[in-house]
């Protein structure tokens, strides 16, 4: 009887240690990541890296100018590629703050919307291109960028005909 009690106690002890170790692991990992995201240095790193990516994207978009009728599809395809790359770059930065996440998520949604717009342009359904672009307006990507402290990403690329 005594032996059985000792065995059970030992077993519970082992389970307890394993459970604590598990919690500890999780805790340390989570505290590690929270310290990463919480540090203002990281946040500014995200901002500067994202703004750098936006600078490149803005230049590429501005260089497209305003497309003529025959250039609309090519314009849409290129813009989709540029924004897709921008999203990959920003996502890779792993912004952990709420505003950074919101911006990254909106950027991801915009890639899907741009793909729909490109497909509509491919079908020469320009009314649909316009209609779908309302979804891009609703994202308010510039506003989200501003909230996340991204100055360049908040600006509209200036193009001229």
């Amino acid at each position: 009887m005594k032996t059985r009690f000792i065995a059970i106690a030992a077993l519970l002890g082992v389970v307890g240690i394993v459970a604590l170790a598990g919690c500890g692991g999780g805790g340390s990992s989570s505290s590690g990541s929270s310290s990463t995201s919480g540090s203002s240095g990281s946040s500014s790193d995200f901002a500067s890296a994202a703004d750098a990516a936006c600078t490149t994207a803005d230049k590429q978009i501005a260089a497209l100018g305003t497309p003529t009728q025959s250039e609309v599809l090519q314009y849409m395809e290129t813009t989709e590629t540029v924004i897709e790359k921008l999203h990959s770059e920003v996502q890779a930065l792993g912004g952990e703050g709420t505003a950074e996440k919101a911006y990254t998520e909106a950027l991801g949604k915009s890639v899907i919307t741009l793909n729909h717009m490109t497909n509509a342009a491919r079908n020469e359904n320009y009314d649909a291109v316009r209609e779908i672009s309302d979804e891009l307006i609703e994202l308010k990507l510039g506003e989200l960028a501003e909230t996340a402290g991204l100055k360049v990403c908040a600006e509209v690329p200036v193009t001229e005909s």
Binding site: I83, R130, C153, V158
Partner: peptide
């Protein structure tokens, strides 16, 4: 496009179509 950031240009183009 005022609050559209990087997407402003493409929105400007798309809103002129149709």
């Amino acid at each position: 496009t005022e609050k559209a950031g990087t997407l402003g240009a493409v929105i400007g183009v798309a809103q002129g179509l149709g």
